[in-house]
Design a protein around this nucleic acid. Sequence first.
DNA 1: TCAATAGTTGAACAACCATTCAACTAAAAA
DNA 2: TTTTTAGTTGAATGGTTGTTCAACTATTGA
Lengths: 117, 117
Amino acid sequence: MEERACCDCDVIHEEIVKAVKKEVPPMEEYVSMANLFKMFGDPSRMRLLHALSIHEMCVCDLAVFLGITKSAVSHQLKSLRLSNLVKYRKEGQVAFYSLADDHVETIIKIGFEHIRE
Amino acid sequence: MEERACCDCDVIHEEIVKAVKKEVPPMEEYVSMANLFKMFGDPSRMRLLHALSIHEMCVCDLAVFLGITKSAVSHQLKSLRLSNLVKYRKEGQVAFYSLADDHVETIIKIGFEHIRE
DNA sequence: TCAATAGTTGAACAACCATTCAACTAAAAA
DNA sequence: TTTTTAGTTGAATGGTTGTTCAACTATTGA
């Protein structure tokens, strides 16, 4: 007898599904990974991260550079901080943001490789 | 006089902005890169790609494995095909999908590294 | 030829997200 | 102290997107 699953499908190659299921980490890890790569899934944020890989920048500079409001930049930077991708040092009123994770430059590099091949 | 830009900001460090602008590729490249990483920005798609990195799979198997409908899987696979991340071979009615780009495994590996540190 | 099944497609919908606006805090300059 | 400015925050909004459903194609087997 075929085993019915949660959806409208028969399991055609049950052995393969079982084998893969055995090798695969729990769902939460994929949620975390997806949240990481979501940060690279927006052109504006991608440019922001690439800019920071060239030079540290304050919120105003980034706003001018990206052509969006300071508020929008600040919201994006907050997300990036929560994902541990950027950090900042404060000098008076000015917050200088920079990259906080070596993976960021690697990911950007892979991105350029992929689209240019 | 401070130079006014498109938004509510003064350019605080004009030299830096100019220097970074000079080093940076045109917007379209960031759009392409963002579209690439969008594919990794969803837990379900992330699992799908990771599964395919372990073994080729057909649409039905993937649907059972992921716990979503065949239709949903097919939609996802179409996006992934358009991004040149997966390919398939057909055997009768069955379409066996597999990874089409070496970068995929690298990106997944970086993802695991980031969340496990 | 006819029924069953793997896969695709488009419409519909709910959830998510990037941005703006307005109001706020805090530090520097006047 | 008062004003200006860098930055943050929360609500509102328009656009995007992941999923399902229903209808379809195409291949296999009876």
